[in-house]
Simulated assay, not measured.
Amino acid sequence: MPPSRHAEAAELESPLAGRPSRLRRLKRSSSIPCYRKPWLRINALLSRLVAVIEVELGEVSPRLKRLEAISPDGENAVFNFAMDAAREAAWLLAELLAPLPQEKWGPLIEAHDQVVADLGKLILHPGALAEGLIAWIREAESKDVAYNIQVTGG
Rank of each mutant, 00 (worst) to 15 (best):
P33G: 06
P33I: 03
P33S: 13
Y35S: 15
R36F: 13
R36G: 03
R36Y: 11
K37C: 09
K37N: 14
P38A: 13
L40F: 14
R41L: 11
R41V: 10
I42M: 13
I42Y: 10
N43C: 08
N43F: 07
A44Y: 13
A44P: 03
L46S: 09
L46D: 00
L46K: 11
S47C: 05
R48Q: 05
R48F: 00
L49P: 00
L49H: 08
V50L: 07
V50S: 01
A51Y: 10
A51C: 07
A51G: 10
A51L: 15
V52N: 12
I53C: 07
I53W: 04
E54Y: 00
E54V: 06
E54D: 12
E54P: 01
E54C: 05
V55S: 02
V55C: 05
E56S: 15
E56K: 15
L57M: 09
G58P: 00
E59K: 14
V60A: 02
S61A: 14
S61C: 12
S61M: 11
S61Y: 02
S61I: 01
S61K: 06
R63S: 05
R63V: 05
R63C: 04
L64I: 02
L64N: 01
K65F: 00
K65D: 03
K65W: 00
K65C: 02
L67S: 03
E68F: 09
E68M: 11
E68S: 01
A69K: 12
A69C: 01
